[in-house]
Simulated scan of single mutants.
Amino acid sequence: MKKLALYKQIRENIIQKIKSGQLRPTDRIPSEQELMDEFRVSKITVRNALTLLADEGLIIRVQGKGSFVSSSLVVSSINFSPSPCSASSMSLIGFIIPTMRTRVIQKLVDYTEHFLQEAGLSMVLSITRESSSIESNVIRTLTELGVKGLIVFPTEDEKYNESLLRLSLDKFPCVFIDRYLRNIDTYTITSDNYGGAYKAISHLLSKSHQQIALISPENANTAVEDRTLGFEQAYTDQGISIDKSLWCHIPLDILRSEQALDYVSNFLQNHSGISAAFSLTEETARLTSAAISLLNDHSNIDLLLKLLCEQMEDIYSPKNAVIPVELIFP
């Protein structure tokens, strides 16, 4: 038998207390915090349960005072199963993401689905593959499907997508994640992209790294813009000039192709003065790490062949080459 959603479990617990006489008409039911502690759930789960009970006329919610068993309630008429109308009002939430390739988004999907399920909501996942046209089609499809709200992680090359703008103008329940549309009033959840970049570059500069490469997608979404501004401000505040020839902006068509690794490797190889690299996205960070490893491997192989050739040419001068070990913090 399928286990009831947590908000339904809370509902049935309160109904059982009413039927048993433990809670009578006009009695105050446990507060949101008390229910959160008792069932070890989030506030939204408790609120969904109380909203459902209120919609069914079983309780009355009084702002600032709490929730009370309805004074006009006929206990014998209570049904344990929520009405179809009430159940459908807490159904589908659309979650739109650009890709499943990064661990950050994979974890985001996992946790979002978990908490939506805890709240009694079902998630419909759509992947835009970084295409704004697919994103527009998905938004239209999900709204026509009747989702009650949308969580949108906009595409990497996001500009003023008309579909996203329409969501805001229509006041459709929607939350943007990480990337968003500037000057558009809506709900957003983002990292402190500016502050994070500023701290990272300030740290590198304090360690005497002045030739810092910036590796980034060639686009201007808000996350990339804010991280770039943080990068620049760190240099400005320490009175150090930025060498923008060390900035590698990867065209999106290359970034999404098999040429991406060669593109970053060639850039690093042609800028030997770089002492540190700062990548603005997880995807470019993985590329940069792979490119550095590739260049180091080539360097070590060149050394190996050089030592072997020396001996083959009757040059005997024993050498002990030690490859540095680098401590990397995850």
Results as ranks from 00 to 15, higher is better:
residue 111 Y to P: 03
residue 119 A to R: 04
residue 122 S to Q: 13
residue 93 I to H: 02
residue 114 H to T: 14
residue 122 S to E: 13
residue 97 I to N: 07
residue 104 V to C: 08
residue 85 C to K: 13
residue 106 Q to I: 11
residue 112 T to C: 07
residue 93 I to A: 04
residue 101 R to Y: 10
residue 90 M to D: 07
residue 122 S to K: 11
residue 97 I to D: 08
residue 127 I to P: 03
residue 141 T to A: 14
residue 118 E to Y: 02
residue 135 E to P: 01
residue 108 L to G: 07
residue 106 Q to R: 13
residue 130 E to P: 02
residue 113 E to N: 11
residue 89 S to L: 06
residue 86 S to E: 05
residue 104 V to R: 08
residue 122 S to L: 12
residue 88 S to R: 11
residue 95 F to G: 05
residue 117 Q to I: 08
residue 94 G to N: 00
residue 87 A to G: 12
residue 119 A to K: 00
residue 104 V to D: 09
residue 99 T to S: 15
residue 119 A to I: 03
residue 141 T to W: 08
residue 110 D to T: 12
residue 127 I to G: 05
residue 116 L to T: 06
residue 92 L to P: 03
residue 110 D to V: 08
residue 124 V to L: 15
residue 142 L to N: 03
residue 123 M to H: 03
residue 126 S to Q: 11
residue 125 L to Y: 01
residue 133 S to R: 10
residue 123 M to F: 05
residue 96 I to K: 04
residue 123 M to Y: 07
residue 103 R to W: 06
residue 127 I to V: 13
residue 142 L to Q: 05
residue 139 I to T: 04
residue 102 T to E: 10
residue 113 E to S: 12
residue 125 L to V: 06
residue 125 L to S: 00
residue 141 T to Y: 11
residue 130 E to Q: 09
residue 113 E to Y: 06
residue 123 M to G: 02
residue 110 D to C: 07
residue 103 R to I: 09
residue 142 L to I: 01
residue 107 K to V: 00
residue 107 K to G: 15
residue 109 V to A: 07
residue 85 C to W: 10
residue 127 I to D: 00
residue 130 E to S: 06
residue 110 D to Y: 14
residue 117 Q to R: 10
residue 115 F to E: 15
residue 126 S to P: 06
residue 129 R to I: 02
residue 128 T to H: 09
residue 130 E to F: 01
residue 107 K to S: 12
residue 121 L to Y: 00
residue 118 E to G: 00
residue 108 L to A: 06
residue 114 H to G: 07
residue 138 V to R: 04
residue 93 I to S: 01
residue 137 N to G: 07
residue 135 E to V: 03
residue 134 I to L: 14
residue 116 L to N: 06
residue 119 A to E: 05
residue 101 R to P: 00
residue 126 S to E: 12
residue 88 S to M: 11
residue 140 R to A: 12
residue 114 H to E: 15
residue 109 V to N: 05
residue 125 L to C: 01
residue 128 T to C: 07
residue 100 M to C: 13
residue 135 E to W: 01
residue 138 V to Q: 10
residue 137 N to Y: 05
residue 111 Y to L: 10
residue 104 V to I: 10
residue 102 T to A: 09
residue 114 H to I: 14
residue 112 T to A: 09
residue 141 T to V: 12
residue 131 S to L: 08
residue 131 S to D: 13
residue 119 A to Y: 02
residue 106 Q to S: 15
residue 87 A to W: 13
residue 138 V to P: 06
residue 127 I to A: 03
residue 99 T to L: 12
residue 134 I to H: 10
residue 119 A to F: 00
residue 130 E to D: 11
residue 101 R to M: 13
